[in-house]
Simulated scan of single mutants.
Amino acid sequence: MSSPAPEFPGLLGLGALFLRCAPVALFRALTYPFRNRRAATFHKDVGFAVLRTALHTITIPQTRWLSPTTAQQYLAFCKDHAIESHSIHVDVYGGTEGAETDSSHQVLGHWIGDEDADVVVLYLHGGGYTQTATRGYFEFWHRFACENNVNGKRQSVATLLLGYSMAPERRYPTQIQEATAALTHLINTGRSPSTIIMSGDSAGGGLSLSVLSHLLHPHPDLPSVKLSTPLAGALLISPWVVFSTEYDSFIRNGESDMVEASMLRRWAAMYLGKSKQDPESDPGPVTGDSYSEPCSNDTAWWRGMDGIVSDVFFWYGGDEMLRDGIHDSVPTFKSGWTEGGGEAERVLAVETPRGCHIEPIMSVMTRPNERGEHQVVIEEWLRKRLEK
């Protein structure tokens, strides 16, 4: 499927966007040694400040014109690594029992590694439900597969990164159905759920929890899916689990992270179809439902989740604006898990001090020759799921 080229959003708007960022970068660079409230490194501090400034005002037409599509990023990644691209079309409405067939609604899944690998990571990328995947996702999973698959003591692994639909063009619960259709596709092509790891970061982490919620409590507007056995695991990297921006971490970490509060509110409203007349204006507080905002549920919601997925790992950074929302949600999830009979040690949450939002992904691009503790702990968890 090919999408029409995005319309040019205009030189005036793009020029104003860049002009706002330049003085911010200069100010942060000059004042870095003298400020107590700052990111962990000089480059993070300057870069994140510029990114926050851009995200505060950038519009969807501007991001559509400036950003390559997920498919374009994937093809560029494959070309640079001299590997053959392999994308599949997932029929969203035709792949699940009880769904209305509509072959016109398909999404692309992009393989990183051999689709016949022993274990597959179904990956849902971040971007506030409105932005396409960036290069870092492909690099992260490519590196992990290359390093893991040479070890005969572990099962081989590949990743299917789903190019699910973006808001506001398509809204909730479309993205949940698309992700569920990709999972169903893997199962229908002969793969046991016990060989599938559900994973995602930021909005993709929240979407992963939405899919798990749907598997346990079928959404009334979506076809249900019954698993023959629990999924192998769920890896949630800086998951966007609640839409509230009232947590203390939005103030405490306001100058040490890359995200921006009004941007999160705008993008959440676009995803939920709750935008004001001007979708680019700040809608104020935004709330979802049990599926779009799964960690707004109480412990009872999560009882029985151990029958859906065998192990769950939450990773988040101490410098994240989303830190408190994730940190406060984990105990509720874990209590419901154990009340339903799940073993407590199978739900793991790790906070990396001074880690920023989705740092395990970001640092693959910014520091490709280094491996921080945030990546080490995630890779160790993954390898344990792959032991023979």
Rank of each mutant, 00 (worst) to 15 (best):
E246R: 09
W301H: 11
L216T: 04
L231V: 00
R265S: 03
D282M: 13
L231Y: 04
P220M: 08
M321D: 03
L272F: 02
L235P: 00
F243M: 15
L222Y: 09
L227R: 05
D278L: 03
M263H: 07
A234R: 14
R265F: 05
R266W: 13
W267F: 12
P279L: 07
V225I: 13
P220N: 14
S228I: 10
W315F: 15
S275E: 15
V225S: 05
D248M: 11
S256T: 12
A232H: 07
G206Q: 09
S249D: 09
P294G: 01
W267L: 11
T287C: 00
V241G: 03
V241N: 02
G206E: 10
S262G: 06
F313N: 00
P283R: 11
A300D: 06
A261G: 12
K274Y: 02
F313C: 04
S228Y: 02
F250R: 06
P285I: 07
P230L: 12
G304S: 08
F250L: 05
T245W: 06
E246K: 13
M321W: 04
R303L: 06
L216D: 08
F314L: 05
S262K: 14
W302I: 09
S290V: 04
P294Q: 12
G205H: 00
D278G: 02
N297W: 10
P239A: 12
W315V: 03
L231F: 11
W302F: 15
S296V: 10
S249E: 10
P239N: 14
F243K: 07
M263E: 11
F250E: 02
L227E: 10
L212Q: 06
A268C: 14
H219W: 11
M305G: 03
A269Y: 12
L264P: 00
I237N: 13
V225R: 07
G317I: 03
T287D: 01
V242D: 01
P294C: 07
M321P: 03
W315R: 05
I251S: 11
S213M: 14
G206K: 01
M305S: 14
Y316E: 04
R265V: 00
G233R: 01
P239W: 12
E246D: 15
W267G: 07
F333G: 06
H219S: 13
L231N: 02
S275L: 10
V259H: 02
S228A: 15
N253M: 00
W301G: 01
P331M: 05
S224W: 02
R266S: 14
D328K: 07
P239K: 14
G273H: 08
H214V: 05
F243W: 09
P283I: 05
D221P: 03
C295A: 15
D328G: 01
T299D: 15
D324Y: 05
T287I: 01
G233M: 01
Q277N: 13
V309D: 03
A300W: 00
S213Y: 06
L272N: 06
T245V: 15
M258W: 06
G254M: 10
D257P: 08
V242I: 11
F250P: 02
T332Q: 08
S249L: 09
V211H: 08
